[in-house]
């Protein structure tokens, strides 16, 4: 691995220099990319929340929610959303829809404590206090109670519950590809199954998000 091996002096005795890499007598200025908010790319405080093997009863079912609560003083950037099914027995399955809606709050589920939400970099510390995450209970029949839910979904996808038809493959519900979903204060997302029961199948989901001060 290499780091820059040369530099161009800056002005007026500041002692600093511009990073360059010297190759055959030519100085290549070396640049680091930043986003439009000035934060360096690749150093975000990135976290993930998960709902595992939630029974597909009482559809539609809200099974995983991420909320940026009012007065949190942070912005959430959602970079990726996955969904899949985990089954312990073969069932006559069909592809079922998974929708992601904007909302303003979620209740009646199991709260995921900010202190245990995993980070891609432990140096980032726990998730900011104003961020809330919850999932439907794995033992309950009902899902989260959502308020302020949008009429139209923000992104949609499907999972297959049929083991002989591609069942079990993860569905890439959302990929930011450089442009994440933004959740300002008072805004959230919920993952919801469609209106048809999935028999004995279960649904799982993950949301990968970044917290920006």
């Amino acid at each position: 691995m290499s780091r820059v091996n040369s530099n161009v002096p800056t002005t007026v005795g500041a002692g600093a220099s511009v990073a360059t890499h010297l190759i055959s007598g030519n100085d290549y200025q070396t640049i680091i990319f930043a986003g439009p908010d000035g934060y360096l790319q690749g150093l975000g405080d990135m976290y993930v929340i998960t709902a595992l093997a939630i029974p597909m009863t009482t559809p539609p079912k809200d099974f995983l929610a991420l909320i940026n609560q009012p007065n949190s003083n942070v912005i959430l950037k959602v970079h990726a959303i996955n969904s899949w099914s985990e089954q312990t027995t073969g069932i006559p399955g069909t592809p079922r829809g998974i929708r992601v809606f904007r909302c303003t709050s979620a209740s009646d589920g199991d709260t995921i404590a900010n202190s245990v939400i995993p980070s891609l970099n432990n140096a980032a510390g726990p998730v900011a206090p104003g961020v809330g995450a919850s999932r439907a209970s794995a033992s309950g029949t009902t899902g989260l109670t959502i308020t302020g839910g949008a009429t139209e979904p923000l992104v949609v996808g499907a999972i297959n519950t049929e083991e002989a038809g591609g069942g079990g493959l993860p569905s890439k519900i959302f990929r930011a590809l450089g442009e994440p979903m933004l959740l300002s204060t008072g805004q959230g997302l919920t993952m919801r199954t469609d209106s048809t029961a999935l028999g004995l199948a279960s649904v799982s989901g993950t949301i990968w998000f970044e917290v920006v001060p």
Binding site: V48, T50, N82, V116, P118, E163, G166, G167, S204, T206
Partner: peptide
């Protein structure tokens, strides 16, 4: 850790 960093299923059929 108490919470997984990532999870998925692996089809066997």
């Amino acid at each position: 850790a108490s919470e997984a960093l990532s999870c998925l299923s692996i089809p066997e059929e």
